[in-house]
Lab assay of single mutants.
Amino acid sequence: YTAFGDLEVFLHGLGLEHMTDLLKERDITLRHLLTMREDEFTKNGITSKDQQKILAALKELQ
């Protein structure tokens, strides 16, 4: 049995499950992801397509 964390649930909701391992390897938490700047997305290997999905979701949360 494995409990999913906030990061996994957030990514799954956006259809971005493939990013879970990448972000965990880089010790990026959901809190960090929510406050990242555009250059940090790129530096951490997050594609512009995935970045757009994340940023759109963040706008909806605000």
Results as ranks from 00 to 15, higher is better:
8 E>K: 08
47 T>I: 09
27 D>L: 01
47 T>F: 05
27 D>K: 12
35 T>A: 09
27 D>M: 03
47 T>K: 09
15 G>F: 00
14 L>H: 13
48 S>Q: 12
41 F>K: 03
27 D>E: 10
43 K>C: 08
38 E>K: 09
35 T>D: 11
39 D>K: 10
40 E>R: 00
43 K>Q: 09
58 L>T: 15
22 L>G: 10
37 R>W: 01
13 G>S: 15
38 E>G: 08
40 E>Y: 02
24 K>G: 03
20 T>Q: 11
53 K>H: 03
10 F>Y: 07
46 I>G: 02
52 Q>Y: 08
52 Q>N: 05
29 T>D: 09
24 K>M: 06
53 K>S: 07
3 A>C: 09
55 L>M: 12
51 Q>G: 11
18 H>D: 10
44 N>T: 10
21 D>R: 07
39 D>M: 05
32 H>Y: 05
32 H>V: 07
61 L>G: 15
9 V>F: 07
23 L>R: 01
6 D>T: 06
20 T>G: 08
3 A>D: 15
41 F>Q: 03
27 D>A: 08
59 K>E: 10
23 L>Y: 03
48 S>C: 11
36 M>N: 00
42 T>H: 11
33 L>H: 00
53 K>A: 09
40 E>I: 03
7 L>Q: 04
11 L>A: 03
45 G>V: 02
22 L>Q: 15
42 T>K: 13
4 F>A: 12
2 T>D: 04
17 E>F: 04
47 T>W: 05
49 K>Q: 10
59 K>C: 09
38 E>L: 03
50 D>W: 00
46 I>T: 02
13 G>E: 12
45 G>Q: 04
7 L>V: 02
46 I>L: 04
23 L>G: 02
48 S>I: 12
58 L>R: 15
38 E>H: 06
24 K>D: 03
34 L>P: 03
51 Q>M: 09
59 K>Y: 09
62 Q>T: 10
51 Q>T: 13
49 K>D: 12
24 K>W: 07
3 A>S: 14
27 D>R: 11
39 D>P: 10
57 A>M: 04
12 H>I: 06
20 T>D: 03
39 D>S: 09
23 L>A: 04
5 G>K: 14
10 F>P: 01
27 D>V: 01
50 D>Y: 04
6 D>I: 00
32 H>Q: 13
